[in-house]
């Protein structure tokens, strides 16, 4: 891996690509600038995205347009309770080849660059588990045979937070594999006015690819070359360590609502998302602000809350905010004696 520092020109090119992607999504999803920025950041970090929001907010439309903007193959899986793992991954079918009958692997909808797992929490845990290997190792194993998924590979899942009947909440192991979980907030009246005026029959504007061939790979390389200094890495580590309720550094107002904290995978994801965020800001290195910007989306869905949090209405994002307020980015404050 190239570890040289990005030049201003390289940073500018990567930022331009990210900006085009973000702006393309913003044209489809009106009034959700922060959401589309975080989606662009997650994709630049090659992470999977879980979108949670009420029906009709444009989650599915966002994902569909994303594949067009990236110019990548698109696969959609509508998760239902009777969906089987082979419906997702594909399976072996008996075919006659050269006069001989044999099982041939028929790829499922998972074999696409950009997979929309719509209403993912409606599938059974067995089917949800079929995504685990694909999301982490980017391959599928059927009948003992592994099949590599196309690169790049993204899973963009959506789920509805209010319909609990007939749903299967995602297990923590699967949630941990999503780089970010983004809440799709409702839009205001002014945005609704625009939607009413501009979207006939709910049709989103036609999206075209905004990234030329090879530009996405260059973006990935640029993200990898964004520097993470020792101070920022220490901040990420202290932030994740403070989320462990059994740790000494966990703030008391967080500890009482937590059962389990974030995993080391969260620290890795935080640094990766921070890299992409820094690149979107036009910098060759990650700053504390980058970490603080992506931390709620990266950490919140990885915290396992205690029943006290549910009783008192404390959300995971509240706890992340408390963590960010409690953990000093520098670690060693200037002592008394100098005016800060």
């Amino acid at each position: 891996m190239d570890s040289t520092l990005l030049t201003p020109a390289e940073v500018a090119r990567a930022r331009d690509a990210l900006t085009r992607l973000r702006d393309g999504m913003a044209r489809v999803l009106l009034g959700q600038d922060e959401l589309v920025s975080l989606v662009a950041i997650a994709l630049a970090a090659r992470g999977h995205v879980l979108l949670e929001g009420l029906p009709g907010l444009g989650k599915t439309e966002l994902v569909k347009s994303l594949s067009k903007l990236l110019g990548l193959g698109f696969g959609r899986i509508q998760f239902t309770p009777d969906l089987l793992p082979s419906d997702v991954t594909g399976g072996a079918v008996l075919e006659e080849v050269g006069g001989h009958k044999r099982f041939v692997f028929q790829p499922g909808p998972l074999f696409a660059n950009c997979v929309l797992a719509d209403e993912i929490n409606r599938a059974s845990p067995k089917t949800q588990s079929a995504l685990l290997e694909a999301m982490q190792e980017r391959r599928v194993t059927v009948l003992g045979e592994s099949h590599e998924l196309p690169s790049p590979f993204f899973v963009l899942a959506t789920q509805n937070p209010i319909e609990l009947e007939g749903t299967y909440p995602l297990p923590e192991a699967q949630l941990d594999r999503f780089l970010v979980k983004l809440d799709v907030p409702p839009v205001g009246a002014d945005v609704l006015t625009r939607i009413v005026r501009e979207r006939h029959r709910g049709q989103a504007p036609e999206s075209t690819a905004v990234l030329a061939g090879g530009e996405l790979d260059a973006l990935f390389v640029a993200v990898d070359r964004v520097a993470v200094t020792e101070g920022v890495a220490g901040y990420v580590a202290r932030l994740v360590a403070a989320s462990d309720p059994r740790g000494a550094s966990c703030p008391d107002d967080v500890r009482s609502f937590l059962r389990y904290g974030a995993s080391p995978r969260a620290a890795i994801g935080l640094a990766e998302a921070g890299r992409a965020c820094a690149l979107l800001a036009g910098r060759p290195n990650v700053d504390f602000d980058d970490v603080q910007r992506v931390a709620p989306s990266v950490l919140a869905h990885r915290l396992v809350l205690d029943h006290a949090a549910r009783l008192e209405g404390v959300t995971a994002k509240d706890l992340v905010s408390r963590l960010l307020a409690a953990v000093d980015p520098i670690g060693q404050a200037l002592p008394k004696g100098v005016r800060a």
Binding site: L5, P8, A227, E230, G231, P284, N285, V286, F288, D289
Partner: peptide, 16 residues
């Protein structure tokens, strides 16, 4: 400096 000073203590920041 958005992290450039910290970066400069660890490596050559070159064009930055």
């Amino acid at each position: 400096a958005a992290g450039l000073v910290m970066l400069a203590t660890e490596r050559d920041v070159g064009p930055w």
